[in-house]
Design a protein around this nucleic acid. Sequence first.
DNA 1: GATGAATGAGCGTTCATTCAT
DNA 2: AATGAATGAACGCTCATTCAT
Lengths: 191, 191, 191, 191
Amino acid sequence: MKEKIIETSIELFDQKGFKETSVQEIVEAMGVTKGAFYYYYKSKEELLKDICISYIEDLLQQQQHILQNVEKSCTEKLHEIVYMLIRNIKARRKSARIFFREMRHLHEAHLQEIKAKRRAFRENYQKLIEEGIAKGEFKQTHTPHMVTFGILGITNWSYYWFNPDGEISEEQLAEIYVDLILNGIKNQEKK
Amino acid sequence: MKEKIIETSIELFDQKGFKETSVQEIVEAMGVTKGAFYYYYKSKEELLKDICISYIEDLLQQQQHILQNVEKSCTEKLHEIVYMLIRNIKARRKSARIFFREMRHLHEAHLQEIKAKRRAFRENYQKLIEEGIAKGEFKQTHTPHMVTFGILGITNWSYYWFNPDGEISEEQLAEIYVDLILNGIKNQEKK
Amino acid sequence: MKEKIIETSIELFDQKGFKETSVQEIVEAMGVTKGAFYYYYKSKEELLKDICISYIEDLLQQQQHILQNVEKSCTEKLHEIVYMLIRNIKARRKSARIFFREMRHLHEAHLQEIKAKRRAFRENYQKLIEEGIAKGEFKQTHTPHMVTFGILGITNWSYYWFNPDGEISEEQLAEIYVDLILNGIKNQEKK
Amino acid sequence: MKEKIIETSIELFDQKGFKETSVQEIVEAMGVTKGAFYYYYKSKEELLKDICISYIEDLLQQQQHILQNVEKSCTEKLHEIVYMLIRNIKARRKSARIFFREMRHLHEAHLQEIKAKRRAFRENYQKLIEEGIAKGEFKQTHTPHMVTFGILGITNWSYYWFNPDGEISEEQLAEIYVDLILNGIKNQEKK
DNA sequence: GATGAATGAGCGTTCATTCAT
DNA sequence: AATGAATGAACGCTCATTCAT
């Protein structure tokens, strides 16, 4: 039941927004009554928290799994993270949009917890970049954190427009973005 | 007066969100009454529309000004657009966040108008990329629209985290991002 | 079990009020579930009735025990009733407060039953006063019922403020009140 | 309007209790809508606060007026306060009952304010008793505060049962109670 | 131009109670 | 003897909007 509430509300929160979706609408979509909702969740905000936490924790875990692999180069790991993020759009686009857009409706305590995890994801990303620099895979920069934000922007933004069922596949988009990140768009042959 | 309503509500919409900001709060912050608000705007949504339209039109205009310059190369124009976007954060960050986050509260008609302008901005951007490819400044790609989205993601995302009064200046961030976009992060010397 | 429900709910009803205490809270405080509650009581109101009935019946019984004693004078019996009421605060203050404050939540039928017993207590009290007058212990009055209400007010009111663990003991307060009732506060020596 | 809300709700709060009276009922009794209520009061609790404050402040003021009179003896002042309290039942019985019964629904801050005034009333009363003792009008006691509580109990309790339109008039009840307080019920002639 | 009073619809939440197991 | 899930009705409150003045 809790699972069904989450599924239903992810759909609605993404379509209409957290504030714009009433508990009434959620339960109507499920064919139960408000009482049932409040039997499982003590507030609408708690439901949002569960959605957000579940999203970011899943992401963190996938990231850690990729980073732990000692046999892969930093370039390969970067590729895998980009691909993982793009691939996730299919299963998690709604959660992701809810995460970024509705997070502000969480209470301070929940917000802290979630921001900490979001920060962890970014810092892991940045450490990968720094390690790649140290190993000579990536070029030197004095602002690895800014570069990390830039790379994150590329994939995060795609949650707002990318259609995994369109003409460009997830694998293709991942390739395009890894190439953009690694090589940029400049015509090197001009050199 | 209309101008003052806009200023006040941009502040509040950014801080608390569109739905979360009541007309009461807006007029209280201005020291007037609701009647005054409804004398100038026939609805809260119309005010949001004005904010969004004003934001995207200003952006479009700045972009057109850059693109019209026949003496600059595509690379230089790209640089200028990136810098313009980053520079805009200082003056327009709140409007930008409202634009992206609250747009969905607009009525269909307003939404169409705004999305058309947003599309125009993106298509201009894409044309610049394609022109750069044609001129040999940028390397060939079969998916210039995807690349454009990627480049847009880098700057758009920065509206959520970049602090123009922090240790990295706007010029510096623009440089970092132009370099990322043009050359990527790969250590070319390894070749 | 029924006893435990009563104990727990007396505590809660006194602290927070009848309406303000949910069945959920009662059962949580006991470590059982709602089903258990409704196995023993068919409604929350019935529980309140039990508490109220138990309070007033106990009082009536104690009063009757005092009044039955043929060897004591009316003055002595008055003293004993006052002392009994004050002494009861320690063990029964919560019940008493619930009795007076929450009685109105009872259904008509229960209310009648309880009011009848409350009336009996008062009438017994009044009869004692009248008997004392007849015997010359108390002075003549045409309004023994009003006097009775006044005397009752003194002790009943103490349920709202008297702290049996404070510097004045129950015995002392009973003495003070019996003296007040019998002799008043006027300085008789002035005569 | 505010006045009408107060009147209507005093009626209802006394009849049914604060918690048991819904805002809906109040506005229905007035023929307006909820919105109107919340235009004048920001919460139901604030309305209760106004009722309670108004009751106790009025009482305090009347008491002060009586106490200020330098030409009256303590006995006379006591008489006047008792009479004032009984007389108040007619106009203020409902407010008084709401005051005592519903006070606990007030927020801490409001509660403090109100309890301070209630304490002031009691302390003024006690000072009168003490002054009367000092002047030889009242007999010596080591517990003037307990005596004060006792005297207060007599009149306060009458708010729960006294019917000013019954066979005993307010003046008569005041006389009965002043006599009870001053002389007690003992038959002095027995001495 | 602007106010102040009022509406009406909706929202998040609570809770006594029921009932199959 | 007791549980756990669910109901349904009500409640306090918010708020965009209207409108006579």
